[in-house]
Amino acid sequence: MAVVQRALRLTSLLVVLAVLALGGLGRLYLDLKRVQDTSAASAEAAQAARAYAADMLSYDHRTIEADLARARSHATGPLAEHYANLAGTFIPQVRRQQKVQQATVAAVAVEEASPERVKVLVFLNTTTSRTEGPAEVVQNRARLVMVVTDGRWLVSGLSTLIGNTPIR
């Protein structure tokens, strides 16, 4: 009888250990899946940010409406509304100054990521020309908050970071 009880206890202990091990493996699998999903999201969002940043920060007084529409097509939520509202004040100012701004992406880096939302730092070289004065070339930094909307990465937030450095 004692041998049977000991065997039963040992079997129970082994079952509990097996269940705990399976639970731990399940948890590790889910963590690994989240890390893989975050890594994939980071790469996809960074690629989208690289493609969109120049469109969103470049414009020409001759094509300003189309430029803003193109920028808006990469945006979602309040940022898309912001681009729609720029027409009233920004377009007349750009036309008056005959301003042309051309941004080119030098590099991107992921600052923070989850599978659904990624903050991307974008380093840009921006050339701005207007009717008065020489063209100005500066290095800029911007943060794009990328979110998945209808299966596509879009920009939900865009902020330029202070400290533009003129290129000599």
Rank of each mutant, 00 (worst) to 15 (best):
V16G: 04
T76I: 12
L20C: 13
N164Y: 02
V110A: 05
T38P: 03
L124E: 15
P115V: 02
G133W: 03
L8K: 11
A66I: 02
A46Y: 07
V108K: 08
A66S: 12
G26R: 12
T131F: 03
A2W: 07
L14Q: 05
K99Y: 00
A21M: 09
T126Y: 00
E132D: 12
G24C: 08
Q98G: 03
E81I: 06
Q36D: 13
A45N: 04
R152K: 15
A87E: 14
S159L: 10
V3H: 08
G26C: 03
R9D: 02
Q98V: 01
V148H: 01
T126A: 13
S42Q: 09
R72E: 14
E111A: 13
H61N: 06
E136F: 00
M146E: 10
R34W: 05
L25S: 11
D37N: 10
V100Q: 10
A103G: 05
L158S: 09
Y52F: 15
R27D: 05
P92K: 11
Y83L: 10
M1Y: 06
H74C: 04
T11L: 15
I167W: 02
A107W: 00
A48C: 03
F90R: 12
A54P: 08
K99W: 01
R34N: 06
T126N: 05
P78I: 05
L10T: 14
R62M: 01
R72T: 05
T38N: 05
A107G: 08
E44A: 15
N140P: 00
V105C: 03
G133S: 06
L22H: 10
Q47C: 02
G151H: 07
S156P: 00
L8S: 12
N164M: 13
S156G: 14
S129F: 00
Q102M: 08
V16F: 12
V110F: 05
G157W: 03
P78N: 12
Y59C: 02
R96Y: 04
I91P: 03
P78W: 07
G24K: 03
L13K: 04
T149V: 15
L57G: 08
G151P: 04
A54S: 15
A51I: 03
S159N: 12
